[in-house]
Each structure stands twice: as structure tokens, then as C-alpha cells.
Design a protein around this nucleic acid. Structure first.
Lengths: 104, 104
DNA sequence: CTCCTTTATCGTTGATCGACGATAAGCGAT
DNA sequence: ATCGCTTATCGTCGATCAACGATAAAGGAG
């Protein structure tokens, strides 16, 4: 039972890249705050066309950070917390290989 | 004395974007391992032309993750640990607003 | 001073991105 | 079945990216 194996390099790069755009970062942050959120709600928040938002959501979804499920006529998005845990773990390992101990 | 204020959204996005490319991720990882590393050494590691590596180093440098200092005819690169600390802190705040507590 | 080494920058080319409007697809209600 | 609402996908266009080779700049060695 290893719930959180680290990401492969390519997955990590893809996830970073997905967060590497201000609009997607804003969407991600909003999803963290709202927990569950329908696409139209996001369109209200960010100053972008609906098709553009949908595209950004697709990028986040394909990166694994976000998952969306269809609920009747609309789609509800939320953070994939299991993936997020792996993402964080991977970043921690990358940025702290027990060698940075000297802040001076 | 607050040594590690969080990054602005745009800085965070830029840093993520910088890590969002497999070659730059590999360079970053190598710099974490070697601590200090001259450009030519990196060119030996990644299968890319010298000019391309230099370009990637520039992106990492402009994002703030890496700093380089000229040492005679060559340039020595290393991780900017202060920035890295801020980066990590910002990501922690982003991905863990005390609301993810349920892994189930 | 001249050559060699090392790295940054320039210029180019093809690929990918980001934005949009228009359209299609799916569902609920009438 | 039809209409209306919501979202995904398509097609397009300009901008940015990623890669390269060639060239310039700067320092050390002879």
C-alpha cells in the first residue's frame, strides 16, 4: 500500500507546465478554494472566453491535476487530490534532496 | 526578518513554466545534485546543442530558480536556494490551504 | 598580440500555444 | 420532438517556443 508514488519526470514537467500559465494557475487556485466547481462558474471568474477556459481545463485535466465529471448538462471540476499529493511529494524530493540544509 | 515571502502569482507561474520542460527539469535536477556546475558540463549531460542549453539556462535564470556567475572564461550555475525556498513555500500554500486534510 | 576555449546572442525555421468565434453534442424541460 | 442551456471541439490566426548553426564577446595561454 503505497498511495503516493512519485511522478515520472515527464508527468512532473507536464504538471508544472500546466500550472505555468497565469490563467490556469488562477483556475487551479479557485478550484482549491471552491473544491467543486462547474465550468460556467470559472468562466465568470477569469476574463476569458468560454472556449478558452474549456481549453485550459483540458490542459489541467490532461496533466492530471484536475478531474471533471459530467453532471447532467454541465461538467463539474475538482482538484485530483491523490495526484496533487503525488505532485507535491515529487516536488519535495526534487527540491530537497537532503542537501540544501545550509541556508547561509 | 521574513526571509521567505511567498511569490507573486506571475513569478510562480513563470517558475512553474520554467520547470515545465523536460530538458530544463533535467538541468535543474542536475544542478541540485552537483550544486555548482559549469555550462559545458551541462552540455555534456543533456543531448542538446550548446546554444540550446544556454537558452534553457537563461530561462531558468530569468525565472529566478538558478543564478550564474562568470568565472573567468566560463559561467558557473547553481540553484538559487533562497528563491527555491520561496518557491516551495508558495507551492505549499497553493496546494495545501488546510483543506486537503482528507486523503480518502 | 594572437590563438584557443567557453559561453551568450543572433537569425532562422518548424512546432506548439493561446485566444477567439462558430459549431456540434448532450441533457432537461416544455 | 423541439427548444434552450451548458460545455467540448473545430478551425483559424498571431505569438511564442524550441531547436539549430553561425557568430560575437571575453578571458587565459602561448
Amino acid at each position: 500500500m503505497r498511495p503516493s508514488p512519485p511522478l515520472e519526470d515527464e508527468q512532473l514537467a507536464e504538471a508544472c507546465k500546466a500550472l505555468g500559465h497565469p490563467a490556469r494557475l488562477a483556475i487551479f487556485r479557485h478550484l482549491m478554494a471552491e473544491d467543486r466547481c462547474v465550468c460556467g462558474r470559472i468562466v465568470e471568474i477569469v476574463p476569458l472566453a468560454q472556449s478558452t477556459v474549456s481549453q485550459h481545463l483540458k490542459v489541467l485535466r490532461e496533466a492530471g491535476l484536475v478531474s471533471g465529471e459530467v453532471e447532467g448538462p454541465r461538467t463539474c471540476y475538482c482538484i485530483d487530490k491523490a495526484f496533487l499529493a503525488r505532485f507535491r511529494r515529487t516536488l519535495d524530493r526534487l527540491a530537497d534532496p537532503a542537501v540544501i540544509t545550509e541556508p547561509a
